[in-house]
């Protein structure tokens, strides 16, 4: 994670950030991102997938932070210790040893556990939960696995993780299901019998929520005939974006490279959700690295980070919509374009 860096290199990077005309080694401004490339639908066996790269060297094709994310749906029984009513989301981050060649396998495990915690806690929060992960009420639901693989880390890994997770979730298609139930033809005698039983057992409870008699009794489901692999996951606009502010005394900058991360270790992760063009909410906030911040400073940082996150969100949405169009283009149209 930490690139080896000399004292003078460190001092050089720090001093140039604080100068009146701040400079970065690759010529970017303080609030500029590297080139971001994104592709969805990279894993054909997943329900949704995306590959994100920050700062790929255009000429050679190498370098940059690269994350692969994919979602997979599994059916679960709703039982204590297993599934939950309305489905659940589990995030897992795996780090390739090639991304951190200097780390031992134990250190790598710890690192991926750290990433997993942040991603899982943020994305599995009830406020973001999609409404269409249930299959049969109180019986079966979908388990949404979000798997992220860090293929290489060249700085700003958190932004890349959140962005790839968002893209993969955006791309996710949920198979359309329909609950089926066997309803026996009711004879009058049978109905009379149940009625009497009801009145005998519960009196005056009526339509209380404790009344278990009106529980849906569907016990199985079928996959309905649908024109596509499934319907897009609901509430996909809500998936958050993360902006990492790298803070050095009064200055801060975005999208740090490995050298910059090594010389300025204090980071503030802010994860935003944009529900409408005007409103936003913070889904997660985390201060990583040694150092401290004054309360007024945090307030200022939060205020100033919102526009960056909004820009990122808008740009990402545009790209994701482009990808949707690109992938849903009919084969015959593609051939027409080629000729």
């Amino acid at each position: 994670m930490m690139a080896s860096i000399s004292k003078s290199e460190k001092a050089y990077i720090q001093a140039s950030l604080l100068s009146s005309n701040p400079l970065r080694a690759d010529g970017r401004g303080l609030h500029d991102y590297r080139t971001v490339s994104l592709e969805t639908g990279v894993a054909p066996l997943a329900n949704g997938s995306a590959r994100v790269n920050f700062g790929k060297a255009v000429d050679e094709g190498g370098g940059g932070t690269e994350v692969l994310a994919a979602t997979k749906l599994e059916i679960e029984d709703v039982k204590p210790g297993e599934g939950e009513e309305g489905g659940r989301i589990v995030c897992t981050v795996t780090c390739s040893p090639a991304a951190y060649p200097q780390l031992s396998s134990n250190a790598l495990d710890e690192l991926q556990y750290d990433y997993t915690t942040i991603l899982h806690q943020t994305l599995s929060h009830p406020s973001l939960h999609p409404t269409d992960l249930g299959i049969i009420p109180y019986k079966k639901s979908w388990l949404l696995n979000v798997d992220l693989v860090v293929l290489s880390d060249a700085g700003n890994i958190y932004d890349a993780l959140f962005m790839s997770a968002r893209a993969a979730l955006w791309d996710t298609k949920v198979p359309v299901t329909r609950a089926v139930q066997y309803v026996p033809p009711q004879s009058d005698g049978a109905r009379g019998k149940t009625d009497t039983e009801d009145t005998m057992e519960v009196e005056g409870v009526g339509s209380s929520s404790l009344d278990t008699r009106h529980m849906p009794t569907a016990s199985d489901f079928e996959l309905s005939d649908y024109w596509d692999e499934g319907a897009p996951l609901s509430g996909r606009e809500k998936w958050p974006v993360c902006v990492t502010l790298n803070i050095h005394s009064t200055a801060y900058f975005l999208d740090a490279t490995l050298l910059e991360e090594a010389s300025i270790p204090l980071k503030l992760l802010v994860v935003y959700t944009f529900t409408s063009p005007t409103s936003s909410s913070i889904q997660a906030l985390r201060l990583v690295g040694p150092g401290e911040l004054q309360l007024p400073q945090i307030e200022k940082l939060l205020q100033e980070s919102e526009p960056f996150a909004r820009q990122l969100h808008t740009a990402l949405n545009t790209k994701l919509k482009d990808e949707d169009i690109r992938r849903n283009q009919k084969a015959r149209d593609r051939f027409a374009l080629r000729s």
Partner: peptide, 10 residues
């Protein structure tokens, strides 16, 4: 490493 989404069953 076999990526968790590489096969049809996760």
């Amino acid at each position: 490493s076999l990526l968790p989404f590489s096969a049809s069953e996760r």
